[in-house]
Amino acid sequence: MAKAFSSLIVGAFGSQKALLGSLAKATPLLLVGLGTVIAFRAKIWNIGQEGQVLAGAMCAYWASLWIGPLPYLIAVAVLVLAGLAGGGVLGLLAGVLKTRFGTSEIISTVMLNYIVIFLLAYLLDGGPWMESGATVAYHQSPPVNAMLEWPTLFGQGAAKLHFGFILALGATALSALLLERTPLGYEIRAFGSNPTALRFRGTDISRLLLVVMLVSGALAGLAGAGELFGTSHRLRAETLLGIGSSGIVVAMVGGLRPSGAMLAALFFGALKSGAIYMRLQSGTPAGLVSAMEGLVLLFFLCAAVATRVHITVRSEAHA
């Protein structure tokens, strides 16, 4: 066990290469985490991040198939937009189900996860995106057009940082600005703490809900597109599944703040990157990481309550 954990740490921070790997793993977690922060601050419980990540990657992949010869930067911009759109539309769909039919977003987003997973399975296994000529079904697409791969910032091979990292940092700043400095951000926070008051103020609650679901899904979709065109270069469910649930944990542990989500994403990114090394060194399987995420979330719930109790005790002492 000690060997497993020491190789976990070496694999996460032991070298420049390891550090780059950790940052690369943190990139999608941060994007999904930010989307979750925005939704959860409004107490809109979007937990369809798994499906939204897949939808973003699928939409970007689809765009890459029909995209013509475009200047490189414009082509990448189209893929970014396609990723945002894929995740955003899926989030919006759950939002519409809520505003039109009153369906709980907790349930609808999870059901949409399964629907998207099966859609992708169909497309890659017997559907139009299956690698042609493959005798065994690997459940993956052919490699994406090499001309459309996202630019690399540092490193190469398994430990490289693609430009999605810059997008994630930019999204962190924008999310913080949105939540703290804009009228929409005020409405989001107010909807989370006192929806009745917001209703009396005359805010269009349905519109707010749809916008939040759109933005939340879009950020998750961008994470999926980035993983596809920056890291894996093949559309494959296994490389994308798990990012969504990690992103939710990142948002919670980050205290539902963009800055906190950034720190949490770095931590869990390091955990994931270290886990790959750990697996090579000590043979400890990577499933341990997702179990640890669940445990961290549970401990975090307990710790959050402990601090809340502490605060109330202190404020009572002052009063």
Partner: peptide, 15 residues
């Protein structure tokens, strides 16, 4: 809390 338990169960199972 339910979400955390789901994650824990699926993670431990996978492990």
């Amino acid at each position: 809390a339910g979400l955390a338990l789901n994650l824990l169960a699926s993670g431990l199972t996978l492990f």
